[in-house]
Design a protein around this nucleic acid. Structure first.
Lengths: 342, 342
DNA sequence: TTGTAAGCGTTATCAC
DNA sequence: GTGATAACGCTTACAA
């Protein structure tokens, strides 16, 4: 209720009959403190319920022990899992994690970054909504360590942890080709989101190699469920309709499945479906989608590790780009070979 | 790279030929500042790329404009949705949100709270892992405003926003009874989690009213998928087996569904299933579960509103408990009436 | 409308 | 081993 003054290091110092700096040493386990004094201080801390003020600490030491994860959509299980990876790694290292949602909007991204700069976060893990150019410039100008997560950026100076979307999509495309598909509808996110662009490119590479590029079509929407439904409906209305659909992420796939259900189109009997990103077992009763799965948790952990290396100064000079592999998991939605399958 | 000194209010003041306090007034839009001076200051801010230091600001003003959401499992869509509600409301009010995951462990909860006290969060929204008694005492001792979310607490002094789990569960139980079910297996979380306890109580009330309590059994596990699978297997191994299952949350239901699939038990033909918590459309292609849905997003928003009222001193004296209704959504998993149904 | 002075609670630096 | 002093960057309180 009352805005009681919180106990300060001074109060503890007086109680333990030492100087404030000695209390500081006990709290931080730094420097030499005699056993007797240490115990006296610890007792005083207990008795007074002293809680160090990290604002003052950060102001003086220029270290907040806080990192931020700026991502596009925490409701997507892929990012939720990544966030857990970041949190666990941060927690292990005694760092606190801040999460910010940009809803894929560059403007929200910048707004959050300005907040984080004010908070003096020690580092930022950024999943850029778009090119990230402006954001990375801002972070660099202010001297904040940054690791880009999940997506490619033009910037030649930042550490990056991501998956090989092009390759994963290529492999999914190859799978479709090997099953005999030549008319494929690619359902992608907006242009400028590197993962989406790379997945389109990878899938189209496989189809082009099979001489099927002309009979395929790319649809563009958002990386969300209703957009997936929309694109699936458009794709299936073409004539001749595609024999397979490629979804650039999990939400698009789910939306597409719903739309096809509505239209009475069966998967995989009438149309095959493959997608990027798996869903965790906690959310799926009957795994059904054939997917390129990304190691989201590992991505998060790895990014924190890169950041910590920089914070400790144990990182190499140059920029590091860590590209983790995707895993193709074949399930029912890709169906059996159709006429002409290998 | 280099640990450049960041631009301070001093630097801006010198550049604009004013006193630091004037810069402060411009930045915070507080007090009177002449038009000419204001423009000069703004120009200086731009030119120098000044970013206010919220550590210093918070240290001096005793306000961090930060609130924390401490919850048990961000991978659960129910909490993810709630978190979005909190974030949106916080963002509207110019507050930053911190999220902390306790994994349903009281020890992690306390550890995070201590961190938050150090960070001088202005308020805490707490989903207590267990009784929350120790946590609430800590928060009160340190004078941090608190709202308890989602769960009941014995504490007679804190604002609470939650759903009526007992009633929702009662209604689900009534539904089962009306469909003719008398042998129901209740799959719950650990004792001491109020939501789980209330749901067991509500469901059992309906069954008791129907004189069916003796033929029902309560299983206890964790609020996670594999535990749901486990409990479902145990329940179905009983003889005679239950005709219906009640899952205390969404993850338990998903695990139970998977287990039944494995066992070749069909839902709802062989066993009916009802559950607490709905899943968002972005994650479910074919909504199938009959559920008691909670307004997670609204819960988050409401909790922030209560907190803000307290921060502004516009809240009434006493404790407020806001209990939002659940909505019963009947889908396929509850099945048709069986012999003896109404 | 603008400015001066002091202090928020901690730690870096240097001294003993 | 322990302590004195100053400073981190900002805003409150008061003055002009």
């Amino acid at each position: 209720m009352c805005a009681k003054r919180r106990t300060t290091i001074q109060d503890v110092a007086i109680r333990a009959q030492v100087a404030p700096i000695t209390v500081s040493r006990v709290v931080n386990n730094s420097g030499y403190v005699g056993q007797a004094v240490r115990e006296r201080v610890q007792a005083a801390i207990q008795e007074l319920g002293y809680v160090p003020n990290s604002l003052a600490r950060g102001l003086r030491s220029r270290r907040t022990n806080t990192i931020a994860l700026v991502l596009t959509d925490i409701t997507n299980p892929f990012f939720t899992t990544m966030a857990r990876g970041v949190e666990d790694a941060a927690s292990d290292a005694g760092l606190m994690m801040l999460v910010c949602n940009t809803d894929e909007r560059e403007e929200k991204e910048l707004s959050y970054l300005r907040m984080l700069l004010q908070k003096r976060a020690d580092g930022v893990l950024l999943v850029p909504a778009r090119s990230g150019a402006q954001s990375l410039r801002l972070l660099r100008d202010q001297g904040v360590l940054t690791v880009v997560l999940d997506r490619r950026v033009a910037d030649a100076d930042t550490d990056v942890v991501r998956c090989d979307s092009e390759r994963g999509a290529y492999e999914l495309g190859r799978l479709l080709v090997s099953l005999g598909h030549r008319r494929v509808a690619v359902m992608a996110g907006p242009t400028g989101v590197s993962t989406s662009d790379d997945r389109v490119a990878g899938c189209m590479r496989a189809l082009t190699e099979a001489g099927a590029a002309d009979s395929c079509r790319v649809y563009r929407g958002e990386l969300v469920q209703y957009s997936g439904a929309d694109m699936a409906k458009k794709a299936l209305a073409a004539s001749p309709p595609p024999t397979a659909l490629f979804a650039a992420n999990n939400f698009i796939a789910i939306g597409a499945l719903g739309a096809m259900h509505e239209l009475g189109v069966r998967v995989p009997e009438d149309v095959a479906l493959v997608a990027f990103d798996d869903l965790p077992p906690s959310l799926v009763t009957f795994p059904f989608l054939t997917v390129a799965a990304q190691p989201a948790y590992e991505m998060g952990r790895t990014a924190v590790q890169l950041l910590i290396d920089r914070l400790n100064g144990t990182a190499p000079k140059g920029r590091r780009e860590i590209i983790l592999p995707t895993e193709i998991i074949v399930r029912r939605s890709s169906g059996d070979p159709i006429n002409g399958g290998d």
